[in-house]
Design a protein around this nucleic acid. Sequence first.
DNA 1: CCCTGTGAAATCCTTCACAGCC
DNA 2: GGCTGTGAAGGATTTCACAGGG
Lengths: 239, 239
Amino acid sequence: MSPARATRGTPEQGLPRPVAGRSDGSDARTRGIPEATVARLPVYLRALVGLSERGIGTCSSEELAAATGVNSSKLRKDLSYLGSYGTRGVGYDVEYLRYQIAREIGVTQDLPVVIVGIGNLGHALANYSGFSSRGFRIVALLDADPVRVGEEVGGLPIGGLDDLEDIVTRERIAIGVIATPAAAAQEVCDRLVGAGVTSILNFAPTVLAVPDGVDVRKVDLSIELQILAYHEQRKAVGA
Amino acid sequence: MSPARATRGTPEQGLPRPVAGRSDGSDARTRGIPEATVARLPVYLRALVGLSERGIGTCSSEELAAATGVNSSKLRKDLSYLGSYGTRGVGYDVEYLRYQIAREIGVTQDLPVVIVGIGNLGHALANYSGFSSRGFRIVALLDADPVRVGEEVGGLPIGGLDDLEDIVTRERIAIGVIATPAAAAQEVCDRLVGAGVTSILNFAPTVLAVPDGVDVRKVDLSIELQILAYHEQRKAVGA
DNA sequence: CCCTGTGAAATCCTTCACAGCC
DNA sequence: GGCTGTGAAGGATTTCACAGGG
């Protein structure tokens, strides 16, 4: 039972949450931001970075809500879990809120990431500049195919799977991205976890089994399309 | 207000659901499968296809649950929204259930899809075989860069953005995939919607504004990583 | 007067537990 | 006896509406 906190990177994800935390009561809040809120914090963060780049110093919950596609009371409730970072009658200081959210998420300094499986998708991920600018540093690319090993992608050489354990421990990598074919995903996952990885972003169309304490998020392109297809069908019938 | 049903392809997604539907009462069920359930149907479908390929003819809710990473009572409740397709004391007929779910989702025959933006990610999507085998047919690839136009990817030639309206109407495309840079995404979206697309899968890191009745799902790689980072941080503190 | 922060209500989702059928 | 289907209970999330501070 209990496939850990694993879930799809799609609706739901309702981790029961270990609830616990150390027994010290800390504050009232601080402990236990709802999962639904956690999933929106990165969205707010991105919007704030955008506002910041456009030189905007202050924004209301209404404005930030519009920029992120959520409604303003949800946004205010979300932010209230972090603390009281706004000013009544005024709004939020963009820089300050941005920093607070980044801190809460834990991306104030770059986290090392390894990508396993450098096929089409792995290439795209390795070249994606969004990672580096948003708190992550891709430190290794690994692939099982000897032909690819040595090739350079996005400025990094592809290593072989043999290097997996070494790299993960040496670089203290906590986050792994799996972009292998489905058949290889579970084994890669096991090795990553064995080497110390505790968070996995899985693009392979498989359900990964992981021990407790390891988080898995899944991104599945055809599942996303099928969800759209369902709604599409309803519209067609209704028309 | 109401940025349509738009949302991220991540937790939540709590579309308020138009609730309505035509005024005839139809059945009791049939109308209104919960959004959380809709998001899991593709997962069940994939697992059933896997079981089917392995020659398994029947499965219990417990087995299907194990294969999909949900718990069995949730799965049974989900399936109960579709109807009573199981046999008490026995389980579900794999082929039959598979067909029923595919029908419910609306992927019994292939739906045409257009991909706009054939960069690294677009390449990966165009080459992804999972689409074709799961109810979708990529009928066009479009890119704004004249240098890329004409190039062939995954067996399809890349067209220019000028062809967008033509292709969408001619092929009656209802689903579009946006894999452009963020700056271009909204304009591409507007043109897709203008030409008749009513469902969009957005990989660009922007919030798209769409009229009512258009669904948007967003897949954002760095947001997924940031959600993992949050939990990662909590683990580190707890250790 | 404006906008945040938040209890309380409403809604949605999951889990429990068991009745009902094979 | 085993397993589905489902009311009812329990949680979680969203929305409402307003108190409270600038």
